[in-house]
Design a protein around this nucleic acid. Structure first.
Length: 878
RNA sequence: GGGCCCUUAGCUCAGCUGGUUCAGAGCACCUGCCUUACAAGCAGGGGGUCACUGGUUCGAACCCAGUAGGGCCCACCA
């Protein structure tokens, strides 16, 4: 027989996404409702969907869909980030393939290529998010280099400059010799690398003596402008005031004294290279040393390195070491573990380099942002542990290097009009700059042609830190309706890796420009790793193809798979098996739906079992709903999903549906079917945020619905605060009885078809409200009461009540005796421990009332149980 | 070098203010079943010295100290 027992997601997913889009269900405009806003962490325009995005955006979609159901005006703003360094690198690579070098292009020409590239590939990742089911308001799709966004960025730059917070300085910066730009401190990743410590001998001028320094970078000797020793180092007092001679180049350099030098490290003598090390720069300034830069921009050596000019720095290191050795200057080398800074983007080893850069003073700006999170609790971080990290960074915040030697990005609005580096003005436009320049220079004859704009672009994060404001045009028009309505946003869902890059800075910008937080809750997802705990990366090839996953398991299945493994802030081990679990779950629900649909309806009375089951399920549903809401309030998204999973699989499918199921090929009563459909509707509502496609599909299949009645815009069920615990507990007892009978069936291999008897042994009358449930699920004749144990019957106990199932010839008396005896001994032992506790005066006097009462109940229960066990033994032994 | 966090079943993880929701969940596993929605399933079942050592307490997975292992963040030691 052909049966439709398989759910195939791919067919319906596209259909429902189109339906939602066609009816503008994702769109939001300000209205009388309370807004619920999320701004997407804008992925790089160069990006393709990876597992991190999938997780991140699934969580956002769950939150936004739930809010929408709850009646909020849900607004999820999508967009992309221009990612200056990553994108520029891609465009440069692409041009290179076409035989075009960046240097051969003008800034304008290059930007044309970049925009063409962006327009062609920039939307890919957003299209992929649609496949995942993300219900973003696509009409609001923003890009960090949109005209208004860029204008906002420039406005903020000018404003901060005018406030005296932006300055230009010649500073040691992190230079990426591959991307040919500076990086902020946060973009530098330190790695431990095994290297060598070279001991190099320097002659002392005018004497036969020498001194030995230890360095990891022998190639930098050409930049040496001093040797530094500790003033109190008694080994070197004879060197005070002397000069040393740099090997190979023979230059004479002073020997200076400074307590900075660690006498314990190396030889106690330090060579000073102010152009290529932050500390050396400080020493240089202190002692008035010369600065000799020996590197080109690509980190090859320049003319200052004499015959090594043009050599790459690592090649030069080998060569210089070799030559030093030949010349007798290299005393020895020893292995040395040192930390090497590398570029987050290009992986190139960072070269500390002195250059003119723009900086933003952070100290004052950070203060309100620090207070808001830690003191005022205006913003909550989930998990909370990130508050420590946040505090540490904000309290030790350093100035932000915001200039990049790139073209792709907002060009710094500083205009030079004169011969010196200080002859510049900062303004939104060249026209404004001109009048400022005329004023500043006193030269009214300056024209636009005399102005030269700074070549650098701004750090990408200098635009994304405004994102929650700028997507609502809140920077240019701070009073506009949209920003007033949607801001502050509600939740931000992102990875902890950009806590400093982005999250902290958005908070800073929010307080500076709107005097309030940009969002209330920040949910940090973990890193997605593979089963072996390795970080997912392109180079390892361990990152599954997101679209293929969706194709194989359905978007709903993948969403469930990701969420099931994702506790907030913990890394998650992604395993495709979880997507399979998600897909199985979808199929389970789909089948249950088909089952109900297949039943004929008749006007017949409602069976008792169905009536009880439905009442019970209402309670379970309500209880679960309360749990789910509690989970959501703590951002425990996976726990919320698991609660729904168990509700639908166990309570709904295994218990409720089994109980209401009509006998084979017979109709169901109208009452039951109607009630069931209502329960199903509620199930679909709470399922919808997690599995939007399946839930909408079934919702639409169960009734003819107008667009206004679509599930996506329906209402989240209301929970009753009262839970009928008596009903729940009675039902649970019934479940245990059913389970007891099933265990006996299993042990004695009695088929389910065979109808059995069940005796409830009880001296007093007990309630029978659940008998119909037990009889239906365990396939029993009406449950009978008995005043005495049933001889020759198998038995089990639920709570302290004993049940008997008579089975002809199946009973092994001696085995039963052993079973009961074992249980008796165990219970006696248990009683003993309880009584010992109760006999302990200190326990009785210290333990709270509640605990004491509990112990006493344990005692009386155990005593009662021992009685029935003893009686059983008597009967068994005949 | 400074700071933060983690270690509970084979795996991934819950476990709130110390006490019957304290030893849990999902998956995996084992044993029966192609049973009348679903084998992508049903029913039943076995798994843990709560990292280790001490302490506090009537009582510790939970609090304290130490040890071992793992992770994260920050920091310029040549």
């Amino acid at each position: 027989m052909e049966k439709m027992t398989k759910y195939s997601p791919s067919e319906i997913e596209a259909q429902w996404y189109t339906y939602w889009m066609d009816h503008n269900f994702f769109a939001s405009t300000p209205d009388h409702r309370t807004p619920y806003t999320i701004v997407i962490p804008p992925p790089n325009v160069t990006g393709v969907l990876h597992m991190g995005h999938m997780l991140n955006n699934t969580i956002q979609d769950v939150l936004i869909r739930k809010a929408r159901l709850q009646g909020y005006n849900a607004c999820w703003v999508p967009g992309t980030d221009h990612a200056s360094i990553a994108t520029e690198a891609k465009v440069v690579a692409k041009l290179k393939e076409q035989g075009i070098a960046k240097q051969d292009l003008s800034r304008e020409e290059f930007l044309e290529h970049a925009w063409a590239w962006k327009n062609k590939y920039g939307g890919v990742i957003l299209e992929q998010l649609k496949k995942l089911g993300c219900s973003c308001d696509w009409d609001r799709t923003a890009f960090t280099m949109d005209p208004k966004m860029s204008e906002s960025v420039i406005k903020v730059f000018v404003d901060l400059y005018n406030k005296g917070l932006i300055y230009r300085g010649n500073r040691m910066v992190n230079w990426d010799p591959e991307a040919l730009t500076t990086l902020s401190d946060e973009e530098v990743i330190y790695e431990e690398r095994q290297g060598l410590l070279y001991y190099i001998s320097y002659a002392i001028s005018g004497t036969d003596a020498t001194l030995t320094i230890a360095t990891t970078r022998p190639e930098t000797i050409f930049g040496d402008t001093a040797i530094c020793i500790h003033p109190e180092d008694e080994r070197f007092t004879h060197l005070h005031g002397k000069k040393a001679i740099v090997p190979i180049c023979g230059r004479e350099i002073p020997i200076v004294l400074d307590p900075y030098v660690d006498m314990e490290f190396g030889t106690g003598c330090l060579k000073v290279t102010p152009a290529h090390d932050v500390n050396d720069k400080a020493l240089g300034e202190k002692h008035g040393l010369e600065i000799i830069d020996i590197f080109n921009a690509n980190a090859s050596l320049n003319a200052n390195a004499l015959q090594y000019e043009g050599l790459d720095r690592f090649e030069a290191r080998k060569q210089v070491a070799k030559d030093l050795d030949l010349g007798g200057f290299l005393i020895k080398t020893e292995p040395h573990l040192n930390k090497v800074g590398t570029s987050e983007r290009t992986k190139a080893v960072i070269e500390p380099r002195l250059s003119d850069q723009w900086f933003l003073k952070m100290e004052e700006l950070a203060k309100p942002a620090l207070k808001a999170v830690l003191e005022d609790q205006e913003i909550h971080l989930f998990p909370k542990k990130f508050e420590n990290t946040y505090r540490h960074w904000m309290e030790n915040i350093r100035d932000w290097n915001i200039s990049r030697q790139l073209w792709w990005g907002q060009q710094i609005p500083a205009f030079y009009y004169g011969p010196t580096k200080e002859d510049f003005v900062v303004a939104e436009t060249a026209e404004k700059a001109l009048s400022l320049a005329q004023e500043k220079s006193g030269n009214k004859n300056l024209s636009l042609a005399d102005l030269k704009q700074d070549e650098d672009a701004l750090d990408t994060w200098f635009s994304s830190w405004l994102w929650p404001m700028s997507v609502f045009n809140g920077v240019l028009e701070p009073e506009n309706e949209e920003i007033q309505y949607y801001y502050p946003t509600n939740d931000l869902v992102t990875g902890p890796d950009i806590l400093f890059f982005w999250v902290a800075r958005m908070i800073v910008a929010g307080y500076e420009y709107r005097d309030t937080k940009p969002f209330t809750n920040v949910y940090f997802t973990g890193l997605v790793r593979d089963k072996q705990r390795r970080k997912m990366s392109k180079s390892l090839g361990n990152s599954p193809d997101a679209l293929k996953l969706i194709k194989d398991y359905g978007a709903d299945g993948v969403r469930v798979g990701l969420l099931l493994s994702a506790a907030a802030g913990n890394d998650l081990m992604f395993d495709e098996a979880l997507c399979q679990q998600g897909k199985n779950f979808a199929n389970k629900i789909w089948n249950g739906f088909n089952l109900i649909q297949s039943w004929e309806v008749a006007d017949i009375p409602q069976p008792e079992a169905a009536k009880i089951a439905i009442e019970w399920y209402r309670e379970v549903f309500n209880k679960t709903l309360l749990e789910i809401e509690d989970h959501f309030s703590k951002y425990r998204i996976s726990d919320a999903l698991m609660a729904i999973y168990k509700l639908l699989w166990d309570d709904y499918s295994s218990w409720l549906l089994e109980l209401v199921k009509p006998p084979y090929q017979q109709p169901v009563d109208r009452e039951t079917k109607n009630q069931l459909l209502h329960l199903l509707e509620n199930n679909l509502k709470i399922l919808h945020p997690f599995m939007p496609f399946l839930s909408e599909d079934l919702w639409q299949k169960m009734a003819v619905r107008s667009p206004e009645e679509a599930l996506i815009v329906s209402t989240w069920p209301k929970s009753a605060k009262e839970v009928n615990n008596a009903l729940l507990s009675d039902f649970e007892t019934a479940q245990q009885i059913v389970s007891g009978v099933r265990t006996i069936r299993k042990e004695k291999q009695i088929p389910n078809k065979e109808v059995l008897d069940l005796f409830q042994f009880s001296e007093t009358e007990t309630s029978h409200t659940m008998n119909a449930v037990v009889e239906k699920l365990a396939n029993l004749n009406p449950v009978q009461q008995t005043q005495a144990p049933v001889a020759g019957a198998l038995s089990f106990r639920v709570a302290s009540v004993e049940y008997f199932v008579p089975i002809a010839g199946a009973i092994d008396v001696s085995a039963e005796i052993k079973k009961v005896t074992d249980e008796l001994h165990y219970t006696q032992g248990f009683l003993k421990s309880v009584e010992k506790k109760l006999a302990n005066e200190r326990f009785v006097s210290n333990a709270p009332e509640k605990v004491l009462a509990m112990e006493k109940k344990k005692q009386s229960d155990a005593l009662a149980k021992i009685e029935t066990l003893k009686q059983s033994l008597v009967y068994l032994k005949g």
